[in-house]
Simulated scan of single mutants.
Amino acid sequence: MPTPVSQRVQKRRDALRAAGLRPVQIWVPDTRRPGFAEECRRQSALAAASDLKDPEFDMLLEEAAASTEGWE
């Protein structure tokens, strides 16, 4: 026999499914893994160097950031 907690969880899941939603599983990097911070720094440096090579991309980002009026 299910516990009251599992019944509530199942009821909630059923309601979400009835609303047209479905569960998904998302895998994300393990931030506790050794080397994670170093890899973040490496990728950030690559992205920054890439941005310096393409000033038009920077202008595109500025324009996009300026056009968020009315967003909530």
Rank of each mutant, 00 (worst) to 15 (best):
I26M: 06
C40D: 03
P34E: 05
Q10S: 09
K53A: 14
A65I: 11
R42T: 07
E72L: 13
A47P: 00
R8E: 04
A37N: 03
M59N: 12
P55L: 07
D14W: 06
V28G: 07
V24A: 10
E63G: 08
E62C: 03
A15W: 02
D58K: 14
R22N: 04
Q10F: 01
M59S: 14
P23F: 05
Q7V: 13
S6V: 10
R13N: 13
E56S: 15
A18V: 08
A15G: 05
P55R: 03
R42Q: 09
R41M: 04
E72V: 14
S44I: 04
A48G: 03
G35W: 00
V24G: 02
E56K: 13
V24Q: 06
Q25G: 03
D30N: 07
S50I: 06
S67C: 03
M59Q: 15
R8A: 11
P4W: 06
E56A: 15
A65V: 06
R41P: 06
S67I: 03
R12F: 15
W27C: 11
L46E: 12
S50K: 11
A64C: 03
S44T: 12
F57P: 02
L60C: 10
S44V: 01
M1I: 04
A64R: 15
F36Y: 14
L60V: 12
E38G: 09
R22A: 05
D58Q: 11
V5K: 15
T68Y: 08
A45I: 01
P55V: 10
R17T: 09
P4E: 08
A37C: 02
L61E: 09
S6P: 10
G35R: 05
A37I: 01
Q25W: 10
K53S: 10
E72T: 10
G35F: 01
A15D: 08
E38V: 06
F57Y: 15
S44Q: 10
F57L: 15
P34M: 00
W71Y: 14
V5L: 13
Q10R: 15
